[in-house]
Design a protein around this nucleic acid. Structure first.
Length: 832
RNA sequence: GCCGGGUUGGCGGAAUGGUAUACGCGGAUGGCUCAAACCCAUCUGUCUGAAAGGACAUGCGGGUUCGACUCCCGCACCCGGCACCA
């Protein structure tokens, strides 16, 4: 290589890598090539489905989107390089409150705001180089989509899975609408942080509790494929407990009252009885007694207590003695009945037997009201003295036939005894409640039910779907506690489909979580207007091979989507019962340890970062920052470093001095080994979501190639081309623009995305020589360069002969020598 | 309280029971340059030592093992979930 050639290469090395012009260059070409189109029916490649949780179109993309889509893209692009036909669709979760609030503010309609934002996000995603299949977009606010929400609702209605009931519901006073249990966080509205109150309303529910066992048990399939954290959260949320129902006779009442308990073995210790203050039963028991007035006042005060206050752990127990008595079925004791708000009306049967010695809440209540406390399970301490309820395993005392038994046997025995008398049986209970889906807002899917004075709840006939939202103009969208749709007279007033009489449409809209509970199915056939989804295409593409999204949806969305899938399975529309085979929860992008927000003043604008560093550098920064599930602290990472690395990789492509297609087998062996090692390690790492490690291996290869060009085999060695092409292909998962530009500079034809992952030659994964460490008593004292296939005996001999080894043995006798060719020898000296 | 996850250099983080600290950020020194930037090279856990080397280090304390960041037992702290759910 002549001196001036090297200098001119060095000059090329110093030309500026300009990521922005590279982006502008490739975007229109990619539009043309559409490498990620997945809908070709003749495509022979095996299929994979990669799905990013679709965004809510609240404005332009932000740093969080940038991270999530960078990670999803690595997986999608990796599988494309591995020869799969990858469906990687995107859509918009486009119904919801922010659009309505924006419309009120701007005095326009929610639709125009929403569609403007969708257009903005779509353009940003394209510029971000997302490998989406643009033929498969969907918006949940399109009638073509929400028609199928209505259809699914009617299918559930037919099966009794959608029903109306009257009960106390969570009410957000700011948004002026009801909330599902899942949307109440720490007693506050998860959306606006207002303190949630209770309101008695008739609302639509989906019977998710019918599926509680399956939602719980089917998680077995997901162990190892979903983060443990998410599985745990779902298990906690479902909250299955096993126990027994026990019937108590009530003096002066014909029917007994059943209670639920997880500790039927403590029945002999039940010294009083409590019913939920807000239950119908409490009102009935109080009626006509001398306690009625006191109870009414108490019940009234309870209804004013917010969820927030109710959850306060240190709150003193309150209640009213109802002047009534229950009979303990095992010993015939008369025990007083109280009403209190520490018993929940909607869990179990809304009534409990109180065992103060062994339940802290009951003990607190007993001490407040001076009620008797009877120990029936021998414990370490005495609850009467300590005020701390005990929960020991036994043995039982003061419990007749249970005396001497441990907890498990005692529970069994008690259930037997109760069953023999027909007064009880084993049962299970769940923390999970049915899913309240009615919302008193405009921008959502109308509930396709017509209320007729004579026929009741009448489903809108299927051929009349969709029930379109009426035009928002002329409607008052301001929150006022009842649905804005109720005021759309012409829309609301319809003839009953059954009898033709004057009737009214249900004025509420559906919770937007309904929309996202099945959108992953719609992507297989987003333009079909005759079915919700093509059943045959679903069979081919689903379940989703890889789902990617934030842990914020660990309970809500994922539980609902699993529920819908099981319902669809029972309807015979899908043949699987879990929708997402693998789940990756990416962390958040934070700044200086806390979530970015305008008010905190630590907001980093994605558009600024893209302008200074370029798309690829931002994507690389996100991917390389650490394990994907960890938060990325923008203060800890270096987009500048990422940009430098990309320039370094790009420069290699300009220096390769051989033609495309040259046979690499004659090339420099050391560099070839590095190339194949990097390809192998990077695929393993990507498959295990260890993207940061894959990038590290790629950086090593770039470093090795740099060295080979500068001080090794030189740019004309075929191995340099092989290495640089491998760099471009690996880089295409993370930094598609730079990779494409490199590919072109290498004389190859775009798109690099379809280049295919190079085949790894296993022979090149074997090193020429390896470093063997020699330990004395477990401490490294010497290193030997040996052949990888060295035999045990000669390795042992070499190790023992080495001077530093002898020195540290210092004449001590050798007790044993552990030889693990070719990497390690450990010499264990005899102890003194 | 119950359940899950974590604790490795100045920082982000690597490590099938076998070379702890890969890769990068930051830092130092040198080269290139009139100079700076860019780029390139070398060094960079702590202590000790002129050096060779040695000692100590993966939250703390034990254990198993020839060998432990990795497995087991106990503890501390941090993060997340559930929690008046009987």
């Amino acid at each position: 290589m002549p001196r001036d050639q090297i200098e001119s290469d060095a000059f090329v090395g110093r030309e500026q890598y300009d990521p922005i012009s590279v982006q502008d260059k490739w975007l229109p070409i990619w539009d043309e090539l559409a490498p990620f189109r997945s809908g070709n029916a003749d495509d022979p490649r095996p299929k994979k489905y990669v799905l990013d949780m679709f965004p809510y179109p609240s404005g332009d993309l932000h740093m969080g989107h940038a991270e999530a889509y960078a990670l999803g893209d690595v997986i999608a692009r990796y599988w494309v390089q591995q020869g799969f036909n990858v469906m990687h669709p995107i859509g918009w979760d486009a119904f919801g409150l922010p659009a309505e609030n924006a419309a009120i503010r701007r005095n326009s309609d929610p639709g125009s705001w929403t569609y403007e934002n969708i257009a903005t996000q779509r353009a940003s995603m394209r510029r971000y180089g997302c490998s989406f299949d643009w033929d498969r977009t969907l918006n949940t606010c399109d009638p073509e989509y929400y028609k199928w929400n209505q259809w699914l609702f009617l299918k559930m209605f037919e099966r009794g899975l959608a029903y109306r009931k009257d009960s106390f519901v969570n009410w957000c006073p700011t948004d002026q609408t009801v909330l599902a249990n899942e949307q109440v966080v720490d007693g506050k509205c998860e959306r606006c942080d207002s303190i949630v109150t209770k309101k008695k309303l008739t609302q639509w529910y989906l019977r998710i509790t019918d599926y509680a066992d399956r939602l719980l048990d089917d998680m077995e399939q997901l162990v190892g494929a979903w983060p443990d954290k998410v599985l745990t959260m779902q298990r906690n949320w479902i909250g299955r407990s096993t126990g027994a129902e026990v019937a108590f006779e009530i003096e002066g009442r014909a029917e007994p009252v059943t209670v639920y308990t997880t500790r039927p073995d403590t029945l002999f210790g039940a010294t009083f009885f409590v019913v939920a203050a807000d239950s119908d039963l409490a009102a009935e028991l109080a009626a006509g007694t001398s306690a009625e007035a006191e109870f009414m006042a108490y019940a009234e005060s309870v209804s004013r207590v917010t969820e927030m206050d109710r959850l306060d752990a240190g709150r003193a127990k309150t209640g009213v003695f109802l002047q009534r008595f229950a009979i303990n079925p095992v010993n015939g004791e008369r025990i007083p009945i109280y009403a209190s708000d520490y018993v929940l009306a909607d869990y179990g049967t809304g009534a409990i037997m109180a065992v103060p010695a062994h339940d802290q809440r009951d003990l607190d209540f007993a001490r407040t009201f001076d009620l008797p406390i009877r120990v029936v399970v021998q414990g370490e301490s005495d609850p009467i003295e300590t005020g701390i309820a005990t929960a020991d395993e036994g043995p039982h005392v003061n419990s007749g036939p249970l005396d001497g038994l441990g907890k498990t046997e005692a529970i069994e025995k008690m259930i037997e005894l109760l069953a023999a008398q027909g007064r009880g049986h084993a049962t299970v209970n769940y923390r999970l409640r049915d899913w309240l889906i009615s919302r008193q807002r405009y921008w959502g899917t109308p509930i396709p039910i017509i209320h007729c004075p004579t026929c009741g709840e009448v489903p809108v006939p299927e051929d009349q779907l969709p029930v379109l939202l009426p035009d928002a103009s002329g409607l008052d969208l301001k929150p006022k506690g009842s649905s804005p749709l109720g005021a759309a007279t012409e829309w609301v007033e319809v003839a009953c489909p059954k009898c033709g009489a004057d009737a009214r449409r249900d004025p509420d809209t559906m919770d937007t979580f309904v929309d996202s509970s099945w959108y992953f199915l719609r992507f297989v056939s987003p333009r079909r207007d005759d079915v919700a989804f093509d059943v045959e295409a679903v069979r081919e593409w689903l379940p989703v091979d890889q789902y990617v999204g934030g842990v914020t949806h660990a309970i809500l969305h994922l539980l609902y989507a699993r529920f819908f899938t099981k319902v669809l399975h029972d309807l015979g529309l899908v043949d699987f019962d879990e929708p997402f085979r693998r789940l990756l929860n990416q962390g958040m992008v934070v700044m200086n340890g806390s979530a970015m927000s305008k008010s905190r003043g630590n907001l980093v604008r994605l558009s600024d970062e893209l302008a200074t560093s370029g798309v690829d550098a931002i994507r690389l920064t996100m991917v390389f920052a650490g394990p994907p599930e960890d938060d990325v602290d923008w203060a800890d990472v270096s987009p500048t470093g990422a940009k430098k690395f990309l320039a370094r990789a790009w420069r290699l492509a300009g220096e390769v001095a051989t033609e495309p297609g040259i046979d690499p087998t004659a090339g420099n062996l050391e560099l070839r080994r590095a190339t194949h090692r990097a390809l192998h390690d990077a695929s393993t790492a990507v498959a295990a979501f260890r993207f940061n490690v894959a990038v590290a291996r790629l950086m090593e290869l770039v470093n090795a190639t740099r060295r080979a060009i500068d001080t090794g085999c030189g740019p004309a060695d075929p191995a340099v081309r092989e290495a640089t092409e491998a760099v471009a292909i690996m880089l295409s998962l993370v930094a598609p623009f730079t990779a494409e530009e490199m590919w072109e500079r290498l004389g190859r034809v775009a798109p690099v995305a379809l280049a295919g992952w190079p085949t790894v030659d296993p022979a090149l994964l074997v090193e020429e020589s390896v470093t063997c460490v020699v330990q004395v008593a477990g401490k490294v004292r010497h290193r030997l360069e040996v052949s990888p296939d060295i035999d045990e005996a000669s390795l042992r001999e070499m190790a023992l002969a080495a001077e530093p080894v002898q020195r540290s043995l210092a004449g001590r006798a050798i007790a044993s020598v552990v030889v693990r060719p070719p990497r390690l020898v450990n010499i264990v000296p005899a102890s003194e």
